[in-house]
Each structure stands twice: as C-alpha cells, then as structure tokens.
C-alpha cells in the first residue's frame, strides 16, 4: 500500500497523540509528531512528509513562522501545509471553502472525516 507520510506540528501533546493514533489506525498513513515547533524544520527535512499539519498558535515559534521556513527550504517548499487552528470557527473555514490566503485550514476540533478530507485535497492539489 502507498502510505502517505504526515508530519504533525502542534504543542498540545494529548491532541497530537490522539490524532496520530487515529491516522495510523486507518492504515494509510505514517505519522510523525513534533511538539516543539523549533524542531519542525529539522524533522521535516529528515522525514520528508507528504503533508504537514501545522498548529497556528504555539509557544516560541508560531505556525506561520514555521510555514515560512518550510516554504523557503528548497527541499520542502512544495509540501502542502494544512493549518490546524482553534481560533477560527468551522463556519469561517467553510465559508471560504477551507482555503484562506492559499492555505488549507481546519478548525479544531473538527471530525476526523473533515480532517481527512482536507489532507486528501491538499495532497491532490500538490
């Protein structure tokens, strides 16, 4: 089977481990977690994921800053990023069809189904 590699960058440990469990149980994903955003770039370079799930509000380095680093890295710049965020509402996400400023957003919490759909569409677009 063609396993997709997913990198989750989020400081909320409980959330990342639950998400990892769910994604792995589907059997179609290989998942790596980074809870400290300063290691995101380094881990991404080693892991070379197919998609990055990136939290926006994190201590030290915020999601958008991580995204900029990734976009500026020649080996990583084409990897789609799905932003996970607790500060916008699902309605706001939906009213923009999930796209805000060229990025895919998923509201937290969203059902696993919604998240999967976003992961799929981001990979498809790439």
């Amino acid at each position: 089977m063609n396993c997709k590699k997913v990198l989750i960058v989020d400081d909320e440990k409980g959330f990342t481990s639950m998400l990892k469990l769910n994604l792995e149980s589907i059997g179609a994903f290989e998942v790596k977690v980074v809870n400290e955003s300063k290691y995101a770039l380094m881990t991404a370079k080693q892991f070379l994921p197919d998609v990055i799930l990136l939290d926006i509000i994190m201590p030290e380095k915020e999601g958008p800053d991580v995204a900029i680093e990734i976009r500026n890295d020649p080996t990583l710049k084409n990897i789609p990023i799905v932003f996970l965020t607790a500060t916008i509402t699902r309605d706001e996400v939906q009213s923009q069809n999930g796209w805000i400023g060229g990025n895919i957003f998923v509201a937290k919490p969203s059902s696993l189904k919604e998240l999967l759909a976003s992961i799929e569409s981001s990979i498809a677009v790439k």
Partner: peptide, 25 residues
C-alpha cells in the same frame, strides 16, 4: 472569547479524537 476558545478547543479536540479512536477501534 478568543483566549478561552484557544485554551478550551485544544483539549476538546483531544477528547474528540480520543473518543473517535475508541469508537472505531
């Protein structure tokens, strides 16, 4: 609201995915 939202939605997301996992598995 936005402070509370961030602080509360994260744990809610954890609970939701935890339960989703249990229901499935």
């Amino acid at each position: 609201a936005s402070g509370v939202a961030h602080e509360v939605k994260n744990p809610l997301a954890t609970i939701l995915y935890g339960v989703t996992y249990l229901i499935e598995q």
